[in-house]
């Protein structure tokens, strides 16, 4: 029997990028859920099982990445607040984004090797 795969939630408004991310992660053996913006993601978190990691785009309509982080971390007692978050951002200077309460910031376009390296940190191979 397959052990339960890690679940990663992708929050990204661009469908193409979401799709290629999903494909890549699934190829690596992860299970993937998606959301097109922060609001959608919050709703999804209420209903589906908790993901092991969140990949978060910053520039999104309706609710952007920064606001999503604030919302999800607002109540520290909520277990959702503990989910590790990796930001994937097109904004050039990644160092600037670090102050957000996230675990890591990766620039776009993503380097898959780098991405898997970071993901494995939070979802270590058994």
């Amino acid at each position: 029997m397959e052990k339960a795969a890690y679940n990663i939630l992708i929050i990204e408004d661009n469908a193409t990028i979401r799709e290629v991310l999903k494909m890549g992660l699934e190829l690596e053996g992860f299970s993937v859920s998606e959301a097109g913006d922060g609001a959608e993601a919050l709703a999804a978190l209420e209903q589906s099982p908790r993901p092991n990691l969140i990949l978060l785009d910053l520039l999104m309509p309706k609710m952007n990445g920064t606001e999503f982080v604030e919302r999800i971390k607002k109540d520290p007692s909520n277990p959702n607040a503990k989910i590790p978050i990796v930001v994937i951002s097109a904004v050039a200077n990644s160092a600037r984004e670090k102050p957000l309460q996230v675990q890591e910031v990766l620039p776009k376009p993503l380097d898959f090797n780098e991405l898997f390296g970071v993901v494995r940190r939070f979802c270590p191979a058994p």
């Binding site: 190829l27 376009p109 898959f112």
Partner: peptide
């Protein structure tokens, strides 16, 4: 221009991974 380029770059990376696999 950056957006489709980002997608393209990631797609090509994935393509290469799959090709190797």
């Amino acid at each position: 221009l950056k957006t489709p380029l980002t997608a393209l770059s990631m797609q090509l990376q994935l393509l290469n991974r799959i090709a190797l696999l």
